[in-house]
Each structure stands twice: as C-alpha cells, then as structure tokens.
Nucleic acid binder design. Sequence first.
DNA 1: GCAAAAGTGTTTATGTTACACCCATGT
DNA 2: ACATGGGTGTAACATAAACACTTTTGC
Lengths: 228, 228
Amino acid sequence: MSHTYEYPRPALTVDCVVFGFDGAGLKVVLIRRGLEPFKDAWALPGGFVQMEENLEDAARRELREETSLKNVFLEQLQTFGTVGRDPRGRVVSVAYVALVRPDKHPAKGDTDASEAAWFPLSELPPLAFDHDEILRVARERLRGKLRWQPLGFELLPEKFTLGQLQALYEAVLGTSLDKRNFRKKLLPYDFIVPLEQFTSGQHRPARLHRFDRHRYEALSRGGFHFEI
Amino acid sequence: MSHTYEYPRPALTVDCVVFGFDGAGLKVVLIRRGLEPFKDAWALPGGFVQMEENLEDAARRELREETSLKNVFLEQLQTFGTVGRDPRGRVVSVAYVALVRPDKHPAKGDTDASEAAWFPLSELPPLAFDHDEILRVARERLRGKLRWQPLGFELLPEKFTLGQLQALYEAVLGTSLDKRNFRKKLLPYDFIVPLEQFTSGQHRPARLHRFDRHRYEALSRGGFHFEI
DNA sequence: GCAAAAGTGTTTATGTTACACCCATGT
DNA sequence: ACATGGGTGTAACATAAACACTTTTGC
C-alpha cells in the first residue's frame, strides 16, 4: 500500500432508485430514515459500501437489508458527489436503478430502515439529501432506455396482457399510444410470445403473453434496432 | 460528524477518456505513469479526488495537470469499483469522457505524468489497471450517443466541412455512410449552418459549416428526434 | 342491455435507401 | 490531362401515423 492511504478520502455510498409498476402508474420504494441526519424523512434505500464489496453487491445488500428485495434487475445510474450533498461531510454516492414487479415484492423494511413503502411518482414526499435529484435523473434514464430496450418486462408479471404493457409504456413515456400501432410495432419482433391463457374478470378476457429473453438477445446480437 | 467516519473507506479517483479526431480516425490521450504501480505503463489521465472537490472539478483538474487540456466537453461515464481493480487497495474510480479538438489541444504532459500522447484507437498499447475496460465502455457510449446527439461538433474545428463531419461519423460508428443521404438527413434540421467560406487545397474547395448550438437546443426543447 | 376493455386492417404520409454523374482545384 | 474529393436528385421501398368498429365478458 503506497500513498493511496495517506490522505483523507470521501465516504462512499450506494443509493437505489427502485421502480415498480402497479398497472396504473410508476412507483418508487422509499424508506423512512431511522437516524440523523434527516431522521424520519423519506429517502432512497442505500448505505455505505464495505471495504471488500463490489459496488453492485453493496447496492443489492442494501436493498435486501432495507427493503427485503432480491434478484431484481439492477443497473448503475450515475455517481453523485457534489461537495455538501450530505451534512455529515463528504459522501459520494453511486446511484443504481432497480426494476421490480411489485406483485412479487412486498417491500417491507427489515433492519436499518424502520419503514419501507411504495410511493406513486405523483405523490412523493420531500426526500432526504439530494435524493430528489437522483430520482429525477433516474426517471429520465428510464424514459430514455425504455424506448430502445424492452425493460418493460422487468416491471410486469411474467405473464402479462398487451394492455398492461402498453399502459406501462404510457406511464413511463408520459404519452398515450395507439393500441393498433403499438402492437404492430412490437409483435413482429417475436420476443413477445402469445400464450393460450387469458385473464378473467369483468370484461372481455385478454390474452396473456410472455417475454422471450433468448429471442430478444439473439436479435440484439444481430444489431437490430427497436424503438417505440 | 456521526458514524460516517467510523470505518475504513475506499479511495476515490477520477479517470478521463479523452477522445479526439484527426480527420482520419479516433484518438485517445494516454499518459505514461511515472509512479508505481504500473510505472512506465500507459494509462488514462486521472487521479485522486480531493476532499473538498466536486467530481467533475477533479476530472478537469487532473486533465489540466496531466495533459494541459482545459475547457473541454466533459461528461460522466460510469463508476468502476470492482474489488481488486487497483493493486494498492480498494480504489473506486469515477470515469469521465472528454471530447476535444486535437488541433486546439496539443496534449503535453505537465506535472505528475512524465508524458502524454495521442494514440489511435487502432494502435493502443497495453493499459494500466482496468483502463482497457473503461475505454471499451467509453467507446460504446460514444457510439451510442453520437447517433442521437450532435456530439460531433465537440470533436471538429469550429468551422468544418461536411466531409469531415461524415468521416467522423464513419470513424465512430464503424460504418460507411452515403454522402447524399447523410446530408439529406442532417441539413434539414438547420443546426448545421453553411458559411460563405471554403477550404483551399489540392481539390475542389469544400464549403465550411458551423454548428448552431442555440438552434439545436431550441429543437431539443421541442422534443425532436434525430438519428443517424 | 349496458359498460368496459380486447381485438383487429387499411389508407396516407413520411422517411429511408440505393444509386451515378459532373464540378473545381492543384499538380 | 488527371487525380481527388465536393457536390447534387430521383425513384423504389419501408416504416409510421391516423383512424372506427366489432367482440366478449360481468353485472
């Protein structure tokens, strides 16, 4: 070990923006902080990176500890390091975006966090630190990515209707889409596979579909181009 | 200050992938390391983040110190934090991408680095640390972004010919493009402004153009969509 | 029978691709 | 005169956008 350890260094945290979709709108997981600073305020789940821990592992650990979520889609977003973003001193945070299916994941607090809950993006409480900013960047990223990558499937149940898929796109993109054109665009790629199962309920049953990840990856390798 | 300082923490660095374009191919700035580890190996310019220094400021400072580059386009790329990526111990690096016009920027070493030089992407030496990986991600990002954003203008002189612009796109995307279709696609947006100046040289003079940043930003705000 | 969501095709407009020749200059 | 890169248009094709009615179910 050379001069690497000779001077003070920032603290390093990870923060996770966990998106979910309930059929109507996008939601995000927040935890109520149990400690100062910002005690009792809502914040993104996250915490300090351990010395021998990869960044993504730290993000997954914090998610597990604070929200009981595991095996979720997780991707690095951006690193936030403005001096003064944390009143405790210099803290640099590597932010991650996670996508989960709320039906599979109840989002209950476990250890550190006294409470964890889903919030609709339209009804957010004030957030601790610069977490509004992190969340804003995360929303932009999600909107940008959804158009070129079929991320939607990380947010929907394994079997879903085309109506649900479209509602998700509409919620993320903030626009309304034409039902026929939406299907015409997606279905020919054949990574959305129709099943012989249908929903039941008050209305006409809708056909269920599943996402064919292998088919999608094969297409991707061929350098295909897909845009909603 | 609470428990923030109670345990050991990773060291934090910034590393910069500086791209330039010389009319023929993409180049990147490397510095020859003067210290262990990887003494005398080539590496990306970068260094430790100071305690009261914003991340981007640290990146700009290191660029200035190691390569004399200033006032360049700079954007955060991704954070690399795999345990073991630095033999000195746990070092997490926030990587940045910079775009510069090589004509304006000679890239001479200044302080820390004994040497700084431009390397064509096709003739790279072995790099220190995980800098190959960082560079790989940077190239991908550049390729991805160039198609939706007119980044090209950061890499070309203020006044440029359409031939130069096309050569740049071809170098970054790794494809060849049709001259007529390329112009037909870009010019109607009117953010490339023809000038009444022409090159001189061995061949027919080419009209010079400039990038109209305001026009581009006005278009962007209108949510326009541009793709090569 | 009515309310509510599912499902389905065609036409028109727009954008993309492919393609070949003449022009201006320096040597 | 020739070598070199600059500059220009059109037709075929593919993709995107606009648009309305019928079906099935639960109540």
